[in-house]
Amino acid sequence: MDMKNSFSRKKIDGVDLLSGVIMVLAAAFVTTFFWQAAAGASGSEESFMARLRMESAKRIEKEQAQIHFLLDMEDEGKTGDALREGAAAAERFDGNSQFHLLLARGYREKGDLGTSVAEYRRALESNRDYSDRRSTFYLGSTLRPFIREVRLARVEAGPGSAGSTVVRRDLFYLERSLAGGCH
């Protein structure tokens, strides 16, 4: 009897059947496991994005609430408190130019022109819309009279007044920003 005939005549016995069932079940288990793992991973990605979205929304809400709080404080005449709160908020919400604008306005009202100039500069540095003539946020009409006011005050104060060089540099920055140009 040759080998080929011996294989062809061999019948499937119980052991073969059991092995086959075990292999199919194992394959099904492995497939299901990886399927669920993949689904779980994408699920966690979705939940991560949802969490991120929620956190961003909360942060914006907090920022807006803080801005309105500062405005309300100013309206109530508590400028000093508003400036303290505003400085902390500008540090906390780094990159939000609105706090710098509020601070600039507050210091201007208080008569601290040097700090006001510095805050206007920070606002312009963090949001270039303020110096873009075509933007609705352009601050040219606000800043030009202010720059004249500061210059006049500096002339009256005389040379060598405190922080003179820093204020001059900040003023130059404001002027260059409003002058436009390719930058």
């Binding site: 540099r169 003023l171 130059f172 002027e175 260059r176 002058a179 436009g180 140009g181 390719c182 930058h183």
Partner: peptide, 10 residues
Amino acid sequence: GLSNQPGSHL
């Protein structure tokens, strides 16, 4: 001038 110049720095 030096100060009021567009697209420049000091």
